[in-house]
Design a protein around this nucleic acid. Structure first.
Lengths: 342, 342
DNA sequence: CTGAAAGCGCTTACAG
DNA sequence: CTGAAAGCGCTTACAG
């Protein structure tokens, strides 16, 4: 293994000088710097991460805590891991996926990461409105940043799509198209029960839309089990006051919903209009659906930026320009699934 | 920060004794061990990862190298990250997602991880038949394990679904149902061009199936662009010798393909039969499709096991029981998309 | 502008 | 059965 000493010997300088060239923490004359860089390249030297973090208490690693319970979160989680990975890379950080170990008592690796200095900062995915992980990290004095928007918005920096406004905007769009019998198909029941922030805020948006638009908005939880979902949809559309328009916060279910409607002879958008809330930019099975997309890239960049700011600064930076939380306004993408009611 | 010294002081022993209790690398008497454990719990001590890895040259981290180009790999990649995360956690390892930095020259973080000792072993995702990353890590003497199956099967331990056999089995199933005009819709063109191992091996399977079954098997690349794909499917089914059965190695496209067929009045399985190759266990949009599922969990466990073995052993363990590569036979799950030809 | 030296928190031979 | 000591590869005050 090639160490800083080897580089120093090759360049004919002291190890400390090599270090200064590397960290840039003090000026080094042009000729020495050149010689050191040449030696680094010649030997293929890379500083040992363990030694560096031991000495500098800086790992250049962002720890990523997966949701507490995650079955339905897989596809979404994968996109964010990828997005965060790109964003973190731009800022000179790697991403550590914390795994759940047998000896972890509920903390899901976060406490291990904090106490063992595996990372400089943690990012919490799949946050819940009252998420115990935030307080736990605070108690340890470990910086934490949230992908999502917990109830206590000052507890940690966070970035999220404005899900409440997204729900309102999608229902308003349907209302403006002339629909008066609206239904909001929310996230899966499990996510609502556990208080996932996007679930709760989406439902709040449905409530607010009802008030704002002056029409009732029925809400229905979605399900990962397509049989269950289809049963619920069946009951919904068989009822006397069947909705003429649907806003769906469970985009993965949209292809199945459209199939279900087609099977019962309901045409979209002729008989029923539909808006998807929080779909992936890339897919939706290639369907031309009116939708509000999940801004994965923008959320990831924001979270990475906040994480790096928190890693550098400590808790005080929450008010600094780089430490400000980010609420991303929803943007409607027009597709072919909205029309006036029959 | 609480260190091993604090624990030692609290327990009334030497720091080295605490270390021995922690690592288990030498016997410690029952009473001392109990006292040490009590002190650890009381203080909430966790060993500093940097110090530990500096001293022991063991990080308990598996580095994960994302595919060289990855657009279409996102959903798949996300599942594997999750699967690997669980499997690694069981073995006491965390996962480091290597990000591409501006100063990385093509090595995509792998070289940085190896030289800087960021991890004990690397796992390569989205491997290509002739993947330069394997040789690069070998040259550095850094252990590497492959998710997939490169051309040189002895270059590194690997685990993969038997894609070739999966293609053969799906086409054989269709042949046994009576179909003689078969088409293999392979992965997207970009994956074929870059030599992704699953793409190449799937296509080899299609070739072998033709020989084995004694009927021609037409092959067609898929596309992430649904407009392009639908154009290709249109041309395919408009041709004189339109196939009566389709094996599809691009499961994400299956819902769109079924919609395309429905739109042109082709009924599945009455007019055309279909088998999906390599779909996710959970979804396929809730469709009841005859398929060969991607064994994400089993592949992840195998790769994690191989990675840990490689981390412990060095290159020689490739022949050891724990270092043996794993080829997972395809399993057909019957669904409602295969029937005899009309 | 550069060097020599201390020390980060561990692990592991070396002693007893 | 346990301790005292060296040292892993860095960074950063302290000197000159």
């Amino acid at each position: 293994m090639v160490t800083i000493k080897d580089v120093a010997a090759t360049a004919g300088v002291a190890p400390s000088t090599v270090s200064y060239v590397l960290t840039g923490s003090r000026r080094v004359s042009e000729p020495t710097r050149t010689a050191v860089r040449a030696a680094i390249d010649a030997l293929g030297y890379h500083p040992n991460a363990g030694a560096r973090s031991l000495r500098s208490t800086r790992t250049h690693v962002i720890a990523l805590a997966l949701p507490l319970s995650s079955s339905g979160y897989l596809p979404v989680g994968g996109r964010f891991m990828h997005g965060l990975s790109l964003a973190a890379g731009d800022l000179g950080y790697d991403l550590l996926l914390l795994t759940v170990r047998e000896d972890d008592a509920g903390a899901h690796g976060l406490e291990r990461a904090a106490r063992g200095k595996l990372a400089d900062v943690a990012v919490i995915m799949g946050v819940e409105m009252e998420d115990p992980r935030i307080g736990a990290m605070d108690a340890l004095g470990f910086p934490v940043v949230v992908l999502g928007r917990p109830a206590d918005e000052d507890a940690a920096p966070w970035a999220d799509l404005d899900w409440e406004e997204a729900a309102v905007a999608s229902l308003r769009l349907l209302h403006e198209a002339g629909h008066r019998r609206l239904c909001f198909l929310s996230t899966v029941g499990k996510d609502i029960a556990s208080g996932r922030s996007y679930s709760v805020r989406g439902l709040r948006g449905a409530e607010r839309a009802a008030t704002e638009l002056g029409v009732p908005v029925r809400t229905l939880p979605s399900s990962e089990d397509s049989a269950v979902l289809h049963r619920r949809l069946g009951a919904l559309f068989d009822s006397d006051d069947a909705p003429t328009a649907l806003a769906v916060q469970h985009p993965a279910a949209v292809p199945g919903i459209l199939r279900h409607l087609a099977e019962r002879g309901t045409e979209v958008p002729r008989d029923v209009s539909l808006v998807a809330v929080g779909s992936f930019p890339e897919d939706l099975g290639g369907l031309d659906v009116t939708r509000i997309e999940l801004p994965v890239g923008r959320m990831s960049s924001a979270v990475a930026r906040l994480a790096v700011a928190a890693a550098h600064g400590g808790p005080a930076v929450h008010d600094a320009p780089d430490g400000r939380s980010e609420l991303i306004p929803p943007e409607i993408t027009r597709g072919g699934t909205v029309a006036p009611p029959a």
